[in-house]
Amino acid sequence: MKTHLRVTIVMCLICIGAFSWGLASAEAAGADWKVLQQSTYGDTFSYDASSVKHTENNTLTVLTKTQSGQYLYEMDCKNKKARLLEGAGASQSVWFNITGGEDELLYKAVCP
């Protein structure tokens, strides 16, 4: 009896997860996510190619995502700088130099 109850609970959780994933997929149907980096543990750093927009200030914006959330970057390709506009740790006034890691991968993918 306890086993049957556990199986039922697990099946309900799977159904709820599948439904939630379906909503997220439908919401992002216009997105064009490109994986830039994937760890051996399956963590990924991706950007939405369809979100790349050029601004009036000769910069561009691009949406990225990791397991911890989504981030909106503004990138100054000419000066190899970036800043986070939205997401954890975002501060619109703080530009930082792109010197390596995930930021460098993003820079190489979206900057001409």
Rank of each mutant, 00 (worst) to 15 (best):
M1R: 08
M1C: 11
K2Y: 13
R6G: 11
R6L: 15
R6T: 14
R6P: 08
V7I: 15
V7Q: 10
T8I: 13
T8S: 12
I9T: 12
M11E: 05
M11N: 09
C12E: 02
C12I: 10
C12W: 10
L13W: 08
L13C: 13
L13E: 03
L13A: 12
C15Q: 09
G17E: 03
G17Q: 12
G17I: 05
G17V: 02
G17N: 14
A18H: 04
F19C: 07
S20N: 07
S20L: 10
S20H: 08
S20K: 04
W21C: 08
W21R: 10
W21Y: 15
G22N: 07
A24R: 10
A24P: 01
S25H: 11
S25E: 14
A26N: 12
A26T: 10
E27D: 12
E27L: 15
A28G: 05
A29Q: 12
A31R: 04
A31M: 02
K34D: 00
V35C: 08
L36C: 06
Q38T: 14
S39K: 08
T40G: 14
Y41Q: 15
Y41P: 04
Y41K: 15
G42M: 01
T44Y: 07
T44W: 05
F45H: 08
S46T: 11
S46V: 09
Y47W: 01
D48P: 00
A49G: 04
S50P: 03
S50E: 08
S50K: 09
V52F: 00
K53H: 10
H54I: 06
T55P: 07
T55K: 02
E56T: 10
N58S: 13
N58V: 01
T59L: 06
T59M: 03
L60P: 06
L60K: 05
L60Y: 02
T61E: 10
V62R: 00
L63H: 02
T64M: 09
K65R: 13
Q67W: 13
S68N: 13
S68K: 09
Q70L: 11
Y71Q: 07
Y71N: 06
L72N: 03
L72E: 02
Y73W: 02
E74D: 02
C77L: 00
C77P: 00
K78S: 11
N79G: 07
N79I: 11
K80A: 10
K80L: 05
K80M: 09
K81I: 05
A82K: 12
A82H: 11
L84D: 03
L84Q: 06
L84F: 07
G89P: 12
G89N: 06
G89Q: 06
S91M: 14
Q92H: 09
S93L: 07
S93Q: 14
V94K: 15
W95A: 04
I98S: 05
I98V: 15
T99G: 13
T99Y: 03
T99S: 15
T99V: 14
G100K: 02
G100Y: 06
E102L: 12
E102D: 15
D103P: 04
L105V: 06
L105P: 09
L105G: 12
Y107Q: 01
K108W: 07
A109C: 08
C111I: 01
P112I: 00
P112Y: 00
